[in-house]
């Protein structure tokens, strides 16, 4: 256990959530990069939480790097697939399940706010992005067990009033919506509990989980274009199926999208 940052937070997390070890940092380039390093170690106590009060280079793909500032909640959760009976064909649905978990949490903390999930992993609050999720699977081989790193960044107290103007149009923090500050540890505990519940739902093929991502889907009934390399697929979105695929009704029929970027 390593605690450079808020030394008081980790014992609450160990007491109130399924996390069994915490590595806490005041600053870290990226919690996911650190968690991916740890994920390759043979002996590790999991679920393990890597948390940073401040990320200096939080990662996304391409120009999707996330707005990060003091007051955001940034963490990476490292889980062992076998602990949750999470078979590999379920892994692609982990980001979606995490997005549902964040929505569930925000709904609890901010009752009545308009929330939605932009397939597969962006959470929107009042039409602006409030959370980014980056899930990675290290290339572990026996004897190192299969693990997943679930990286989450939620804008909590990092008000977008101080963000660059172009980001104010597209991003929002919880404090901007609620006009009050939140206890980061409290938000974290809520999210971790929801993630635990939804990972179990995923592993058990609980139909309530896909029902929930369909309910939260912001793209359903909208015309959507998905870019996959040089190929673009577009058409009205018919929702998200049980396997998490985005359904697009194209002139060639219904396409199930498992990857690509929503334009």
């Amino acid at each position: 256990m390593k605690a450079e940052g808020d030394a008081g937070a980790w014992h609450i997390i160990l007491r109130d959530t399924f996390v069994r070890d915490v590595e806490s940092h005041a600053t870290l380039p990226s919690t996911n990069t650190r968690a991916m390093e740890l994920a390759q170690l043979p002996d590790l106590t999991t679920p393990l939480l890597v948390i940073a009060e401040r990320q200096t280079s939080g990662r996304g793909r391409g120009d999707h790097s996330w707005w990060s500032n003091d007051g955001a909640l940034t963490f990476s959760l490292l889980i062992e697939a076998s602990q949750f009976s999470l078979s590999p064909e379920l892994w692609p649905r982990v980001a979606l399940a995490t997005g549902v978990s964040v929505c569930d949490t925000l709904e609890e903390l901010l009752p009545g706010v308009p929330l939605g999930l932009k397939w597969p992993n962006d959470v929107f609050l009042a039409g602006r992005k409030v959370c980014g999720i980056l899930t990675e699977v290290p290339a572990n081989r026996p004897p190192v067990p299969a693990r997943l790193v679930i990286g989450v960044g939620i804008n909590v107290n990092n008000s977008f009033a101080t963000a660059p103007a172009e980001l104010q149009q597209i991003g929002i923090a919880l404090c901007d919506s609620a006009e009050t500050k939140f206890d980061l540890t409290d938000v974290l505990v809520h999210v971790l509990r929801r993630i635990e519940a939804n990972v179990w739902s995923l592993a058990k093929s609980d139909p309530q989980l896909p029902a929930r991502w369909r309910e939260l889907s912001l793209l359903t009934n909208r015309h959507v274009a998905v870019q996959q390399g040089s190929r673009q697929v577009e058409g009205p979105c018919a929702g998200i199926d049980d396997e998490g695929a985005l359904l697009l009704d194209t002139p060639d029929g219904r396409q199930r999208m498992f990857g690509g970027t929503v334009a």
């Binding site: 649905r93 980001a95 979606l96 597969p120 999720i133 990675e136 699977v137 390399g229 040089s230």
Partner: peptide
């Protein structure tokens, strides 16, 4: 796949002789 990034190991020893897929392609 759906924003889950899987590192793929070679699973064998050898020398790469061709990359058969373009970056970003499905």
């Amino acid at each position: 796949a759906m924003k889950v990034f899987n590192q793929i190991p070679a699973e064998m020893n050898g020398t790469i002789t061709a990359v058969l897929v373009k970056n970003g392609d499905p």
